[in-house]
Simulated assay, not measured.
Amino acid sequence: MALVHPAYAQLRQVTPNAAVMLADNPSVMSLEGTNTWILRAPGSDECVVVDPGPLDEGHLARVAQVPVAVTLISHRHFDHTEGAGRFSELAECPVHAVTPQYRHGGGSDLRDGDVIEAAGLRIRVVATPGHTADSLSFLVENDNSVLTADTILGRGTTVLDDTDGDLGDYLQSLRTLIRFGRGYTVLPGHGPELPDLETIARGYLAHREDRLEQVRAALRTLGGDATARRVVEHVYADVDRSLWGAAEKSVNVQLEYLRSFS
């Protein structure tokens, strides 16, 4: 029987060129855990790894069982990067990332439009900031799949990091993904894969625009100087309170966006 999500500590094939190893680090923010993606063309004796995940020796050792040509980091969050340095040692591979502190083993910068040719694949870097300033997606040109990291999740919606997230950037990133068109499989940083990138990205965009209008309406009721917490209590009253902390981060980013026009 084919494996389905979630399947911990097991290599689960998702497309002809992409398999996933789910890290056992579930939380409110990481859903069932972080997806570490292992990419290689059929017959290749090496792979490309995207997001080694947490510093979990068992997880990292399982991922490193196939020779690794290069490792890519989608964005700075620790559940994607914490194990990167140790993984570089185990797999004896370079780790490429936007942010220098997450580069290891001689790894270099990643920029929009870069193409990584390894493991029989062509993988194009697509800048998709908004969740964080350094967020990237990766297009596997060989089979029309896109690794969206935390820009689009396998279920639920994305939290915008109020440290360096930006709503304007995020809306533009969703529009960038929509322009890929139909027929692209979504390989997310958390949760199960999804069948059609354009449809999912349009749904994400509509949801985010709806939430933004709800925040605008809350400000009309509460006053323009209302705190993010008061807005969350107003807009997310029907949402489990355990999620309010995450919602507050996104609301902070939305308030900054709205107030930039005032």
Rank of each mutant, 00 (worst) to 15 (best):
D79R: 10
R12I: 13
A69D: 07
V63F: 01
W37P: 00
E32V: 12
L22Y: 10
A18S: 10
A61C: 07
V48G: 02
I73S: 07
H75A: 04
V63T: 10
H75Y: 03
A18Q: 07
S74N: 11
P16R: 04
E57Y: 07
M29T: 05
A61I: 02
A69M: 01
M21F: 15
G83M: 03
N35Q: 03
A64R: 00
E32D: 15
A18G: 05
N25C: 14
H80F: 14
W37Y: 02
S44L: 11
I38W: 10
V68G: 11
G53M: 12
T71E: 05
I38N: 04
N25E: 09
I73Q: 06
C47H: 03
E82W: 03
I73G: 05
V63A: 04
V20L: 15
G33D: 12
M21P: 08
V50Q: 00
V66T: 15
R12F: 09
V49T: 04
F78H: 09
P54E: 02
V20H: 07
A84N: 08
V49R: 02
V63G: 02
V49F: 11
Q13C: 05
L11C: 08
D79V: 14
L39Q: 01
Q65Y: 05
E82N: 07
T71M: 09
V68R: 07
V20E: 15
V63D: 05
A18C: 13
H77S: 06
T34N: 15
G33I: 13
G33H: 12
D51T: 13
A41S: 03
V28R: 13
P26Y: 08
C47Y: 07
L11H: 12
A69P: 04
H80M: 08
Q65E: 15
P67S: 12
D45Y: 04
V49I: 15
M29A: 08
P52W: 05
L11M: 11
R12W: 10
H80K: 10
H59L: 00
D24M: 13
V68S: 06
E32P: 11
P52Q: 03
L22M: 10
W37S: 00
R12P: 09
S44D: 10
D79M: 14
N25G: 11
D79Y: 13
L31A: 07
V14H: 08
N17M: 00
Q13T: 14
Q65A: 14
G58R: 00
T34H: 10
R76K: 14
R40H: 15
W37N: 04
T15L: 14
T36Y: 06
V66P: 06
A69F: 03
M29K: 05
S44F: 08
E46P: 06
A64I: 00
R62S: 03
N35Y: 02
C47G: 06
Q13N: 12
V48I: 12
F78L: 11
N17T: 13
E82V: 03
L72K: 06
S27W: 01
V48W: 02
D24V: 08
V68H: 09
L60Y: 01
I38K: 03
P54I: 15
I73T: 11
E32F: 12
R76V: 10
G53H: 10
V14G: 06
S30G: 09
H77I: 05
G43E: 08
V14D: 06
L22K: 11
P16Q: 08
A18R: 03
A41R: 01
L55R: 09
A69W: 01
D24P: 09
E82M: 08
P16D: 08
S44N: 10
C47D: 07
V68F: 03
T34V: 11
P52T: 00
M21Q: 14
